[in-house]
Amino acid sequence: MNTTTRLDNSEDIVIMRNVNKWYGNFHVLKDINLNVKKGERIVICGPSGSGKSTVIRCINHLEEHQEGEIIVDGIEVGNDVKLIHQVRREVGMCFQHFNLFPHLTILDNLTLAPIWVRNMPKKEAEEIAMKYLERVRIPEQANKYPGQLSGGQQQRVAIARSLCMNPKVMLFDEPTSALDPEMISEVLDVMVELAEGGMTMICVTHEMGFAKRVADRVIFMDAGQIIEESEPEEFFNNPKSERTKLFLSQIIQH
């Protein structure tokens, strides 16, 4: 929109500066600083309760931060509802439990936001939806309901749903952790393709294979802080902090 002036001219599409957040007295995010460039692929990992989901949920203001600033695509995410909607339009998000709308068909799930948020004509929205359904390889499911699809298919639909808004950034909040093991790879394949297509991605995930393959940077969080941040090779082969070493040994043990 033309009412806002860009707060930043840099390449960074997401900027978090000294972000702090509390749930009541519990300090969940501590001085988070994170810059994400256009086209960059970030993987955030860490033990449960470390605040990694909270970080990405602050980016599109599903969670409110109390201190610091978050700038997405040049717009500050604060208390202004209009600006929040503007940011959300440009930021796609996939959830652990897919969160498809069970009362709508797959096609209607995909066209909902383009029609109501972008005011796109229905026909055009449907064409775009079919394009993305083909990209996640399930165009034949377009007229079914989410309840009729497997978990892996639902998550692929959820990814396609976000893509229909043509987002500048995609957030993934543990997209594979609710899936049966045999369905994980079909979702990861779609995510890898997306990464290779140049999408800016911030993924909270425990899929270390995925991190090694596509991430530009891996961020390790513990107890609400960013403990370590490095390229995947460095991160996995030569972790610096003790906590990172411990975490890596725990997840690779079995």
Binding site: L62, H85, R88, R89, N99, L112, A113, V117
Partner: peptide, 8 residues
């Protein structure tokens, strides 16, 4: 959350 995240 899904509804808000898509900008509705």
């Amino acid at each position: 959350e899904a509804a808000s995240a898509m900008g509705l």
